[in-house]
Amino acid sequence: MNVSGTGAPNAHNAKVMNRFELTKRLVAQLDHDEAVIGGIGNTNFDLWAAGQRSQNFYMLGSMGLAIPIAFGVAIAQPNRHVIALEGDGSLLMQLGCLSTVAMQKPGNLTIIIWDNGLYQITGSQPTASASTADLVAIARASGIANSHWAADEDDFDAQVAAALNGGGPTLIAARIDGEPGVGATDRDPVQIRERFMRGLGVRRASGA
């Protein structure tokens, strides 16, 4: 069994990177209060550890729904850029959402896939992307033409910068190692949701 977390058999030129490192690089580029939806488990944990922002939504359950949730935010707030972070296993659970996003063409949506080829958090069982499935090819075939592997850290930064300029939907996939997330989110769904809504300017703090 391959537990090395190399993933993405067809992305031969893509370097294997680290999710926490790339998450920090992503967050460092966010200077317009962009919304970020973190998928279940490690994706969320690294987003949390990369520096908490009130424009982050940490999805505690509902495996596979980070992209649909981000898409919903993007519909409601067309002037804000929205980023979905999702693991390969989670994406494979809800592949149809790529087709829906492609059909509706939200210009303000970026999807980032952390492909470790693993269901890391449940015991590092290999996903289909470790051997046979190419997630970027799937995204392109779903209709998201602007889908690319990040070749290395600099390429990831450049692709994120381009995506934040608009012209989405964009999908960026990164091959990552098998490391677990470095932090752990709070576990209060109502507080997470309320803080996010304040961060998006939908709610005001009481008394404000």
Binding site: A35, I37, F57, S62, L65, I67, P68, I69, A70, F71, G72, V73, A74, I75, A76, Q77, R80, C97, T100, R193, F196, M197, L200, G201, V202
Partner: peptide, 11 residues
Amino acid sequence: GIVSGAWMGGM
């Protein structure tokens, strides 16, 4: 999921 995100975004 989409409707949940939209609600949080004010729609």
